[in-house]
């Protein structure tokens, strides 16, 4: 058990080191930031001054060491495009993305599990079949088209909800929240649905198939034979036993939500980290790209590690297999 944990943590650290190398090599090999930062009318003096300021005149190993040292402290340099420290920009943008991700994650989990249980119990019902077919379409629709569709329906045609931005925000000690104002809450609805819909269908289909599997087991029949109420059988016996794979997938999907937020944020011009990243790619703003890469890697690697370890503790059957190792 301990050996497994140590190996897993070491692996994660190695991955992060490699990602760090990739992020760093982006700085050294990709283009000339000076070209991007200064306009057409630049003098050699301007170029030299900026090069010195950004530390681009130093040799490779020195720059690498500096990069690592700074990255660990959360310092990723100055954005080529905005001329401000990347960490400041990221911190300023993070609340928008996290609030969006949290709301759509909760939507996806809540509706996903509820609909999954419903479609499994009423396997042959008309409504359950309709939900299943609708979810197939939901899976094949690209996220950005769902967003556009919602904008067209609820903003252009009905005029109920705003089509872009975050509405008014309230500043709570550095954390700008949209939950406390009406326009902020209204602005959150469409992006949250857009982002959560795909994850919801995924969770729903998973819960459904796991439920169907479990409902076939003998202990469910036995519980029914004992005369337990249907509700008790469905929820206390069946749903509980489907939770292990569901929790794993939900954990892994948390990272996916943050990644897919890039698309949703672009459609709705949501001022979060994803929109920042897309703009960084468009303008080849390397420090922002590198910082985003590092941030998201830490998150993904961390989530994967936690899910793996959780799996190990939740399901005792795995421990037997785990001893053999690979």
């Amino acid at each position: 058990m301990l050996a497994y944990i140590i190996r897993r943590v070491a692996q994660s650290a190695l991955v992060l080191l490699i990602v760090g190398l990739v992020a760093f090599s982006m700085f050294t090999f990709v283009g000339d930031p000076i070209d991007n930062m200064l306009g057409q009318e630049r003098t050699q003096e301007d170029i030299d001054r900026l090069r010195g300021q950004l530390g681009l005149d130093q040799p490779f190993p020195v720059q690498y060491y500096k990069f690592l040292e700074n990255a660990v402290q959360g310092n990723f340099g100055v954005s080529y495009r905005q001329g401000r420290p990347v960490s400041d920009i990221l911190l300023e943008r993070a609340p928008a993305t996290l609030e969006l991700a949290a709301v759509s994650g909760l939507l996806a989990i809540g509706f996903g599990i509820a609909l999954g249980v419903f479609t499994a119990i009423r396997r042959n019902g008309v409504l359950a079949n309709f939900i299943m077919s609708a979810s197939l379409i939901g899976v094949s629709l690209p996220t950005f088209l769902i967003g556009i569709l919602l904008i067209y329906l609820f903003s252009v045609e009905l005029g109920w909800l705003p089509s872009f931005g975050r509405g008014d925000t309230v500043d709570l000690g550095g954390w700008s929240t949209g939950f406390l104002t009406e326009s902020g809450r209204k602005a959150l609805i469409l992006p949250a649905i857009t982002l959560g819909l795909y994850q919801m269908t995924l969770i729903m289909r998973l819960v459904r198939s796991e439920m169907l599997e479990v409902l076939r087991q003998d202990y469910i029949r036995f519980a029914q034979a004992r005369g337990l109420r249907e509700r008790a059988v469905n929820f206390r016996h069946a749903l509980k036993n489907t939770m292990v794979p569901v929790i794993t997938v939900i954990g892994l999907q948390l990272g996916a939500i943050i990644a897919f937020a890039i698309i949703t944020e672009t459609v709705f011009q949501w001022p979060g980290v994803g929109l920042l990243f897309i703009n960084a790619i468009q303008f080849v703003d390397i420090p922002v790209m590198a910082a985003y890469l590092m941030l998201i890697s830490v998150m993904f690697v961390g989530i994967n590690l936690i899910v793996d370890l959780l799996y190990f503790t939740i399901d005792p059957r795995l421990r037997v297999d785990g001893k053999g190792g690979h």
Binding site: G255, A256, A259, F260, I262, I263, F277, M289, I296, N304
Partner: peptide
Amino acid sequence: LTFPSILVAML
């Protein structure tokens, strides 16, 4: 595989 492929493609 731990990263969504659309993110890898963007990077």
